[in-house]
Nucleic acid binder design. Sequence first.
DNA 1: TTGTATGCGTTATCAA
DNA 2: TTGATAACGCATACAA
Lengths: 336, 336
Amino acid sequence: MTIYDISEKAGVSIATVSRVLNGSSSVSEKTRQKVLAVMEKYDYTPNAFARGLGLNTMNTIGILCPDSSDLYLAKAVYYIEQKLRDNHYDSLLCCTGYALENKQKCLNLLLSKKVDGIILVGSDFVNETFEENNYIREAAKDVPIMILNAVLDCPNVYGIVSDDYRSVYEATSALLSSGVKDILYFYNANTYSGKQKLSGYQAALKEYGLPVVPSLIQFYDGPHEDISAMIQALQDASKNGTAFHGVITSDDTLALAALKYAVQNNLKVPEDFSVIGYNNSFITVCCNPELTSIDNKPETLCGELIHMLMEVLSGNSVPSKTVFSGEIIKRGTTRF
Amino acid sequence: MTIYDISEKAGVSIATVSRVLNGSSSVSEKTRQKVLAVMEKYDYTPNAFARGLGLNTMNTIGILCPDSSDLYLAKAVYYIEQKLRDNHYDSLLCCTGYALENKQKCLNLLLSKKVDGIILVGSDFVNETFEENNYIREAAKDVPIMILNAVLDCPNVYGIVSDDYRSVYEATSALLSSGVKDILYFYNANTYSGKQKLSGYQAALKEYGLPVVPSLIQFYDGPHEDISAMIQALQDASKNGTAFHGVITSDDTLALAALKYAVQNNLKVPEDFSVIGYNNSFITVCCNPELTSIDNKPETLCGELIHMLMEVLSGNSVPSKTVFSGEIIKRGTTRF
DNA sequence: TTGTATGCGTTATCAA
DNA sequence: TTGATAACGCATACAA
């Protein structure tokens, strides 16, 4: 069934069928009904490819995500897809992994599919050096690019972030106030978001007149889901003479590892050992005691991200950087 | 840049450009190089919509998933997307939720976008009554449909499942052998997969000459992530006089709830109380003790699913039902 | 080996 | 309010 078939059976021109299809007002009610009846009868659906060719869009947004099975990223992808569909856009998903080369390849793939915009889910897409972000700048010349949890100063690129600096600053302050002075910061990414968090930790220590001890800043660079390796990293730090009675992490999985480390070493949580995670993901309620964690409001961020994307696609201008506040969710691994 | 521009600048016809583009052998090396050079120079990429219109395909597969933030489903989507891309197909993702009406709407949406095939992720898409599955049968008339974890007897529909019946049968048998006789089966879905699991539980009891006690079969129909509600359901069962020293669940989250129930009631795990979950997801290692669980090999299933889809799209015939075996992963919540 | 001409199914412009 | 027709950018059958 094509528009020609319908026009013939309805005894009108294809132009009229097209008008009915697109809700044009300049078609008589009588003709409209006639055409609609024929469409209904033959269960006609317009050919999306032809429409795409003519309009130069198929209402599709590309979603780039390093790992859609990651608890936090999966939630974000979920929100994003739903909200896009609410706005009559479809989602072309690409799970890129964490290697830069593959991210570039996937981004170009999406571009070649002529998506109307691209969403980078997670701060992993923004790299440290200027050159390593050129692939984003290039793409931004073609379509608007929205980044969740990172910012990149470039035209047509928009960042929606949670105030990671402040969240960790407040978490650290709260832990210090509760009497834990030797806090280890345990993190796994030097992304934009990662740096913000670390700065928050350092600023809070300074605010309290405490020194920033390098050995209390532990970078974990093992596999993303290998809890044993994370625990081992903490054991190593401890063996090397670093004493700590609290851990703040950049991620709930790391926090879970810190909790398991405490259990292994017979440290009472939260009496003798405190832990604060990040993301407020499902795993915070899987363990015992449950993890205090920072909620960075992924649904809020995603909602705003889509809202802004729609504005950009409508030709309206929106801020290149939007910041939301996080919130500490208190559970069983802290005394406050 | 269109094919016309390239042909003009290269001094050849558009047919020749098209041939170079599609790697046709019948073009002289000299001409090929000339055309490739021009393409390179102007950074030409063929228009995907025009190509789609001509070929009537854009190499896209629709992925339907009730909730892509569910730990198990998210992993499946991740594997599927990657393997599809390996085969030069793109993934159009739709998170449908659990309501039938919305599943239908999303499926039709994908169809209208002219995807080449559809993958239903999870057994939730296959309903109990014949009529409620008509939306799948209708869609199968247009494109092949692959279902992960469920089967539907219908042409052009292919199911790839784990042997849930046998897995739960063996889990139950193992628990019985370890001395736990009053095992509660705790589940949350009456899907195809859900029924298989329940049957496995019942069969094992019969095999051991034990009665199938209705009160030991508990259906949980609350929210998917509400652990408190799950624990409460077990408390209620216990209060109503049902005694049980072991729980087998259809899902790791339910198993986690069972473990928390045991902790709340000061039951020693696994000495006095055993738990076996299902899916072998990340949460099995989040708690203490860690959960014994059934690994239903999602990566294997997804790999085979994509392989079969590619065969179908190539015109080859494949079995309408493919079954893989699961495996019990022993951890800390069982004595065996 | 190369080129010409046509079809793919829409939307949109311009006349009527 | 309607219709004829061009454009969108490619693949391909057929001719040369």
